[in-house]
Nucleic acid binder design. Structure first.
Length: 478
RNA sequence: GGCGACGUAGCCAAGUGGUAAGGCACGGGUCUGCAAAACCCUGAUCACCGGUUCGAAUCCGGUCGUCGCCUCCA
């Protein structure tokens, strides 16, 4: 499968698809902006995680070694607010949501990152960077704060395509706070913030304080992956100001350009509100669907299929309908992986040819900036062919090989393919009892007691157990 | 106001110069005691207007609409 690669990645910086040429193919440096741990995660956070999990898995599949860094922002106003409200140390807030996030990612079958740095544990590196930027006169201290001097960076704005002059014109609307007064230019942003009472704080050359938001990612990326990395990912809402500022800080600090070779941004999860308007899913709008409550109703694969059914760069709208579609899609793939009929033995060369074609189309779609919708379309074709072949009594090596292709390509996309509990499964404690009821119903059917048999099936359905009568007996899933 | 993205069948969603992938739903059919599942058949000229071209959903211009960023944000 590790043929010469033709992988192209859309780079937000250049707004074009570019051939992927990593610094070191054995060590692709991938940094993804994680979450600010002040509350539980929602579907939008999961989308980002699933997208970059897919990217990481595909890179691995194509033979690259990957070092994946995912940070936790654990120093932040909202964390501080929440700690005050609950009357607990801020560390207990961050630990709670870090633990929750990691557990949810595990349930979503997201591969663990190589390193999970925390902003609060990288203070020395951050201070070192800020000192250097001050020495270079790219940053300046002001009343215990330190700001990045935007005008000192001639190509500031290149990622988000904003010009400092344009921003000045319309920038007066926001209330001019004390912070604005301490800045030399309205676009300057904080590298370090002077401590306020009751906040987490660390010693620094500028007095007690804490890091600004953007600097942590520069420091952590630099520390764990070096001054230049291959891929930096995150949600499209991070393009400005977060990633723009990361570039400014990092390139000014290291003198090396580009800081990031490929900037990748996933689209936002949107949701329809009461008025039927579409809006971004977010905590502040109160329109979010938490990952844990999603997982209480559906498998992680359902969310993964929902996410991968759209190009990662495009926004996608979350709704009951699309989730139900994804649920059915996952079910369909699982059904396609069912074994051939017990007495099947008919060969089918065409199935092998199709599997080869699907494999080829899957890879060319994925090589084209991770076009998962097209890759999935190919897999759907294979699933349909497998089901048709099974119905016709096809079995044997061709059938098995085609199934292996489907299974392994789904695994490349990160699907866990956990089967629902069925007979013989030890995961369902009710299994022996369900088997008993199914056997009883079999007796009723043999006696043509259809009404009773159907009633039994209906009642089991109400309890969440689905029966299917086939030529080789009745199967059930829960 | 500035920057950016998008508008494809009932719904979701690819395609970005040569007469529209895939999925869901609907309808018809095969199978089944019935059902479910599966399989087969069935549907769009691509927001609108104008232009470029032998040829455009695909390029250019305009109009309308939707969304994101410009403030914390995946």
């Amino acid at each position: 499968m590790n043929t010469p690669n033709n992988l192209h990645i859309y780079n937000t910086l250049t707004r074009t698809k570019e051939p992927f040429e990593p610094i070191d193919p054995d060590n692709v440096r991938l940094y993804v902006c994680g979450v600010t741990v002040y509350d539980s995660s929602h579907i939008g956070h999961a989308m980002s995680a699933l997208v970059f999990d897919m990217v990481r898995r595909y890179l691995g599949h194509r033979g690259y070694g990957v070092t994946h860094v995912l940070n936790f922002t654990d120093v932040d106003d909202k964390i501080i607010d929440r700690a005050h409200r609950e009357g607990v140390p801020w560390q207990s807030i961050t630990q709670r949501y870090i633990d929750g996030y990691l557990a949810e990612m595990d349930a979503l079958n997201v591969m663990p990152a190589t390193v999970y740095p925390h902003a609060s544990q990288e203070i020395d590196e951050i201070i070192g960077m800020v000192e250097r930027l001050i020495d270079e006169e790219i940053a300046y201290e002001s009343a215990g704060d330190v700001y990045f001097r935007v005008l000192a960076d001639e190509d500031y704005g290149k990622l988000s395509r904003r010009r400092v002059e344009d921003q000045q014109a319309g920038g007066g609307e926001r209330v001019s706070s004390d912070e604005q007064a301490r800045k030399q230019h309205p676009m300057d942003f904080a590298l370090w913030k002077a401590a306020k009472p009751g906040e987490p704080q660390w010693e620094s050359p500028w007095g007690m304080g804490r890091p600004g938001w953007h600097i942590e990612c520069s420091a952590m990326s630099m520390k764990y992956l070096g001054p230049q990395i291959d891929i930096h990912g995150g949600g499209s809402d991070l393009i400005f100001p977060h990633h723009e500022n990361e570039i400014a800080q990092s390139e000014s600090f290291s003198g090396q350009t580009p800081f990031v070779r490929y900037w990748m941004h996933n689209g936002m999860v949107q949701v329809s509100n009461d008025q039927g308007e579409i809006e971004k899913m977010s905590k502040s709008l109160g329109n979010y669907f938490a990952v844990d409550s999603f997982l209480a109703r559906y498998s992680g694969d359902v969310l993964r299929l929902f996410v991968l059914s759209t190009l990662y760069r495009r926004p996608t709208t979350f709704s009951e309908k699309v989730i139900d579609d994804a649920r059915k899609g996952v079910e369909r793939f699982l059904l396609a992986l069912r074994p051939a009929k017990a007495d099947a033995s008919e060969a089918d060369e065409a199935l092998l040819e199709l599997a080869a074609s699907v494999d080829e189309r899957f890879h060319s779609a994925m090589d084209d900036d991770f076009n998962t919708p097209v890759a999935l379309a190919a897999l759907h074709e294979l699933a349909r062919a497998l089901n048709g072949a099974r119905d016709r009594g096809v079995g044997g090596t061709e059938f098995d090989a085609a199934q292996t292709t489907l299974q392994s390509l789904l695994a490349v996309l990160g699907f866990a393919l956990d089967r629902p509990a069925t007979q013989g499964s030890d995961s369902a404690e009710a299994a022996p009892f369900i088997d008993l009821l199914v056997a009883l119903r079999g007796q009723l059917r043999a006696d043509k007691q259809w009404a009773l048999a159907d009633q039994l099936r209906d009642r089991l359905a109400e309890l969440g157990v689905t029966l299917e009568d086939g030529a080789e007996g009745t199967t059930w899933t829960i």
